[in-house]
Computed example of a mutant assay.
Amino acid sequence: MTVLAVQVLEAARAKSRRIATAESCTGGMVSAALTDIAGSSDVFDRGFVTYTNTAKTEMLGVRGATLEAVGAVSEEVAREMALGALVNSDAQIAVSITGIAGPGGSEFKPEGRVCFGIATQAGCQTETIEFGALGRDKVRINACDHALSLLLAAATSM
């Protein structure tokens, strides 16, 4: 995780871009990975840990209607989270993560399903990754790594 986080910071720094995160199931792991690196404050603007639906609505502007219609673990909510992080920060790149780390899940939203959003001024892309029932720790670590990969790709392509 550390090497990837260093690459994210270097890429964003090279383009004079700032980063924000909006995390649910990872509980701040992406923010921690970035801020574990000395000097990250010139790139990392802020992180939102929005574990509850209320927090998603209050801090990021996720619409209650979206949460009711599709649930928190959805690309629609990941999109609103990422865009909300951009609007509520001084960042030019924002990543969002919302998923089911486990244990548990359902037939319709199984354990290991994680939805991501990556937003810039050019727009927002979303995707869903099915990590599977790897166990809570591994799902969260994989989600964190994937979010860092999305940040790296966004920072490199700007």
Rank of each mutant, 00 (worst) to 15 (best):
I100P: 05
K56D: 12
A122W: 12
R46M: 10
I93A: 09
G84A: 05
V70Q: 09
T98P: 00
R140W: 07
T26V: 10
R113E: 09
D137S: 11
G104H: 06
K138A: 15
D90H: 15
G28C: 06
K56V: 01
P103M: 13
C115Q: 02
Q125W: 09
D45V: 14
A12N: 08
T66D: 12
G84R: 00
A147R: 04
Y51I: 12
G84M: 03
T52L: 03
L4S: 11
V87T: 10
F116M: 01
I97M: 03
F108G: 13
C124G: 10
V49A: 08
T52S: 15
G112N: 12
F116K: 03
G105S: 05
V77A: 08
M81N: 01
K15F: 05
L148D: 02
F44A: 06
A78K: 14
A119E: 03
A65D: 14
K109W: 06
G135K: 01
A119N: 09
F116R: 00
I97K: 06
G105N: 04
A38S: 15
M81E: 04
A38Y: 03
T98D: 02
V87R: 15
E111H: 09
A155D: 07
A38G: 06
E107C: 01
A33S: 10
L134M: 13
D36L: 08
S31D: 04
L9S: 10
M29C: 08
A122M: 05
E75I: 03
Q125K: 07
D137H: 09
M29R: 15
S41I: 05
E111W: 11
